[in-house]
């Protein structure tokens, strides 16, 4: 439980951080809250020779409204997101999800940037960001670019981020007023990764679902955007049949691993259960 030797760097600007990553090459890794990275370093499953800590970069902080988007700095902590009145008003699902991550101590340190950038399929934010159609702002040697969350994840710990890039900001389109939302997470205890979890956003007009989006956590080697499941709701009154269709469609795209928290078949079925329950809860919350 003792990591291999590494050098620690603490730049104070994005520019310096990017330059450091470029200069140090393959063996350097950015460090945000560290909750995914440090445990794998302690068991020596990862042994980066350089850690570039982003904690000293003040421009990576903050949660702002920018026209039709909410922009969340990569180093905003889960606890800051929970406390944000702006998010509570416009994107309450972020607060609901953040409260299900780890425990209070973890949430004081864990950041949205680290949570989405590391590519850990157990993390909760990536599926939520897919559900919300967020974009990630990346800064690298050759300037800045944006990648949609839905196009960011390739495999476990394998993402669109280049080694010398830093994820600086998460940009989320402001959802329709009166939308219904829910993040339903099945876990054994506080601090556990999800057995299965589902993020659901719904817009309902005159009793009919006009728009829906569903993201799934920890039931494949990447987070999943369950497009067909969401489509199964659109145009329906979200009755039992529609919900069952959505749950079945969500189960169909999962490819979970078996582990101590349950065999693959259980996690597949729990995907359906969490999707069903999230839809039911989101429907209750939506202004119809």
């Amino acid at each position: 439980m003792i990591p291999a030797k590494f050098e620690y760097h603490r730049p104070t600007s994005v520019q310096d951080a990017v330059a450091l990553l470029a200069q140090l090459g393959e063996e350097a890794h950015p460090l945000a809250g560290g909750h995914s990275l440090i445990p794998v370093m302690k068991t020596r499953l990862a042994a980066p020779e350089h850690l570039v800590d982003l904690a000293g970069i003040s421009s990576l902080k903050g949660i702002r409204r920018e026209q039709d988007h909410i922009a969340i700095g990569a180093m905003a902590t889960q606890s800051e997101m929970i406390a944000s009145p702006l998010l509570a008003e416009i994107l309450p699902i972020i607060r609901e999800t953040s409260l299900l991550i780890g425990d209070p101590q973890i949430r004081y340190v864990g950041t949205i940037g680290g949570n989405v950038a590391n590519g850990d399929p157990g993390n909760d934010m990536p599926a939520l960001m897919m559900c919300l159609d967020a974009e990630y702002q990346l800064a690298g040697r050759n300037g800045e670019r944006r990648v949609r969350a839905r196009a960011f994840y390739f495999g476990a710990y394998d993402t669109a981020r280049q080694n010398d890039e830093i994820l600086t900001e998460v940009r989320i389109p402001i959802p329709a007023k009166g939308h219904g939302y829910a993040y339903e997470k099945l876990k054994r205890k506080v601090g556990d990764y999800a057995v299965a979890a589902a993020a659901v956003m719904l817009t309902i007009t005159n009793g009919t679902c006009r728009a829906a989006s569903i993201g799934l956590t920890n039931v494949a080697d990447t987070p999943l955007w369950a497009e067909a499941a969401a489509q199964a709701l659109v145009g329906t009154r979200i009755d039992r049949t529609a919900i069952a269709n959505a749950a079945n469609a969500a189960e169909a795209i999962t490819n979970p691993a078996s582990d101590g928290h349950g065999p693959a078949e259980y996690r597949r079925k729990m995907t359906g259960v969490t999707v069903r329950r999230a839809i039911e809860r989101a429907k209750l919350r939506a202004e119809v």
């Binding site: 425990d103 054994r188 205890k189 506080v190 601090g191 556990d192 990764y193 582990d259 101590g260 928290h261």
Partner: peptide, 23 residues
């Protein structure tokens, strides 16, 4: 628990169930 090769499964608090006050 152990798998068929005798690998010990779940020898960390990620897997070994130690309930918190919440549970």
């Amino acid at each position: 628990s152990y798998d068929a090769q005798g690998n010990v499964m779940g020898a960390s608090f990620m897997d070994f169930f130690l309930p918190t006050a919440v549970e």
